[in-house]
Measured scan of single mutants.
Amino acid sequence: MAAGGDHGSPDSYRSPLASRYASPEMCFVFSDRYKFRTWRQLWLWLAEAEQTLGLPITDEQIQEMKSNLENIDFKMAAEEEKRLRHDVMAHVHTFGHCCPKAAGIIHLGATSCYVGDNTDLIILRNALDLLLPKLARVISRLADFAKERASLPTLGFTHFQPAQLTTVGKRCCLWIQDLCMDLQNLKRVRDDLRFRGVKGTTGTQASFLQLFEGDDHKVEQLDKMVTEKAGFKRAFIITGQTYTRKVDIEVLSVLASLGASVHKICTDIRLLANLKEMEEPFEKQQIGSSAMPYKRNPMRSERCCSLARHLMTLVMDPLQTASVQWFERTLDDSANRRICLAEAFLTADTILNTLQNISEGLVVYPKVIERRIRQELPFMATENIIMAMVKAGGSRQDCHEKIRVLSQQAASVVKQEGGDNDLIERIQVDAYFSPIHSQLDHLLDPSSFTGRASQQVQRFLEEEVYPLLKPYESVMKVKAELCL
């Protein structure tokens, strides 16, 4: 049975990233139509530049190519590739079939990587351009969430054990800070992308030097003109047959890092959902379990974690691919890159769409948070109580021993009897502590235990987050809708 299948058929496997999760716009960027249309555009740009620099290419040939950029006979191309065992030459023939007058000058002087690699770089750039505003929107939604809850005390956790208090907004800023680093890295790697350009079979530009009869300047002009037509500021000066596969490492490393950030955020949300302090959106008709109707599973956060793990592992592909590119190139890269580049971007696209949807509907339960604080705060307040007693004339050592005994009794009630923490009640009825009984409410005010959390939130948002989001103001209103 021949390899390949009808990918629109229910009898043929289709990647869930495309069929179930990723956005239509990201799927289109990695589609065959987008790819092969870009090949034709690159052939047109090459012909236009070659004509401008004096090669015998007519206006009629150029116009014929322009008129057929979208006229792609995919069936013919597939048949040609089956016959020739070469995808680029299959599309040269297919393009030439609908451009008979231009057929002889299509791909003039070029090698397969002229269309293959340059198209990949265009796709990487455009895919990054799709991700950047999506990530900015996630940051914006979380920034709104953090600002609104900047002063809401909550129990902090280290080692997932109760620690000092923080605020809900401050905790959210930990998430935002990681995503801001990801946004900066995505922008950097996007701006650092260079075009492969017009380089020939081993990167020496020998074929173009021959076409222009040894004119170095025209060869350099050709490279520059096509690079500018493709919208790049610069091209690699040095290439082998391909652009260095280190570029793929750079791009997928940034995406993998984004995956790590999203995994951490969504894990926190899942843990908070278990504590009943916070939940992701839950639709009115949504079913959490087929057997347990009360369940409210954090399905979206779980999906993000599941896909983020996949995204983090994909960076190993370009690392290994770059390491086995012998001399000017081997074909070890080809099949692998067809999979890992598309999957990385479709996965990143999915987790950003999902995280935006989550961040637009996060639900906080202040009463649950308050109750958990009441359970733990008495123990945390013991040092403040000791200091207040010393100020009232008591002995630190005597007070410490009193607190120690009462704390152990209260802990026994919590752990052995399943009761509430009654340390404060014990202190309130103990005559030894009568000098500070009137101060206990103040000493137990949760806001006095959150330090500068709310001020940190305000400063972080104003100095770091809002300036970073400013270039994306025009796209901030787009909502994230999930079908599944």
Rank of each mutant, 00 (worst) to 15 (best):
L179G: 02
C180K: 13
A348R: 08
I424Y: 09
C483G: 12
L131C: 01
C340R: 07
P293S: 06
V368G: 12
S253N: 12
M380A: 11
E279T: 13
A103Y: 03
G156E: 01
T158F: 05
V364W: 11
V465A: 13
N71Y: 01
I238V: 14
A308T: 12
A136S: 10
D59K: 13
E283S: 15
A3N: 03
V251R: 09
L124W: 11
R329S: 09
T354M: 13
K391V: 15
P446T: 09
T313A: 15
R20A: 14
K276N: 04
A102L: 07
K295D: 09
C340F: 11
A322F: 13
F433M: 09
E464P: 15
F160T: 00
L461S: 14
A77G: 11
T38S: 09
E81A: 00
I265Y: 10
V262Q: 09
V189T: 05
P162D: 04
T267Y: 03
G231E: 14
L377A: 09
L314T: 06
L131A: 15
M89Y: 11
A163L: 04
L193M: 08
Q439N: 10
L142D: 15
K276Y: 13
D332V: 05
A103N: 04
L53D: 06
I369K: 00
A344I: 03
D129E: 00
Q397C: 14
P100C: 08
N71D: 07
H217K: 14
M380L: 09
M26K: 10
K134E: 01
T382N: 14
T204W: 12
Q161T: 08
K477R: 12
L132E: 08
L165R: 04
T204H: 01
N421I: 07
L46G: 12
L362W: 15
D349E: 14
Y243A: 04
D59H: 05
V405I: 04
G231F: 03
L42D: 15
Y472L: 15
R372M: 04
G8H: 14
K470Q: 11
R309Q: 12
T321Y: 02
E401T: 15
G197Y: 01
A344C: 07
E50R: 02
S207E: 07
M380K: 08
E250V: 03
V115K: 08
H93W: 05
L444M: 15
S112M: 12
C99M: 00
Q428A: 00
I373A: 11
F74Y: 07
M181H: 15
V262F: 13
V465R: 15
S454R: 11
T166A: 09
K246P: 02
A22S: 14
D422G: 08
G169V: 02
P56I: 11
A143W: 15
L331K: 00
N274A: 01
K134W: 06
A453Q: 07
Y34D: 09
I369D: 12
L275Y: 05
C172K: 02
I386L: 11
Q177D: 01
V475A: 13
Q320P: 11
I72D: 08
E463M: 00
K295M: 03
I427T: 14
D32C: 06
L444A: 11
S12C: 11
R245P: 06
P24I: 13
K284V: 04
T242E: 09
L252K: 04
F36H: 13
T239S: 13
L468R: 04
L124D: 09
K470Y: 08
F208A: 08
T313E: 08
V413T: 05
Q439D: 13
T347P: 14
G418L: 14
V324E: 06
A308G: 14
Q63L: 05
Q416A: 14
W326D: 09
P471W: 10
L346Q: 00
S31I: 14
A103C: 04
L183Y: 12
G156F: 02
L69Q: 00
H437T: 15
F95T: 08
S15N: 14
E383Y: 07
V368E: 11
L311F: 09
L132Y: 08
F145Y: 13
E383N: 15
D420F: 15
T202V: 04
V92H: 00
R396W: 02
P24N: 15
Q458T: 13
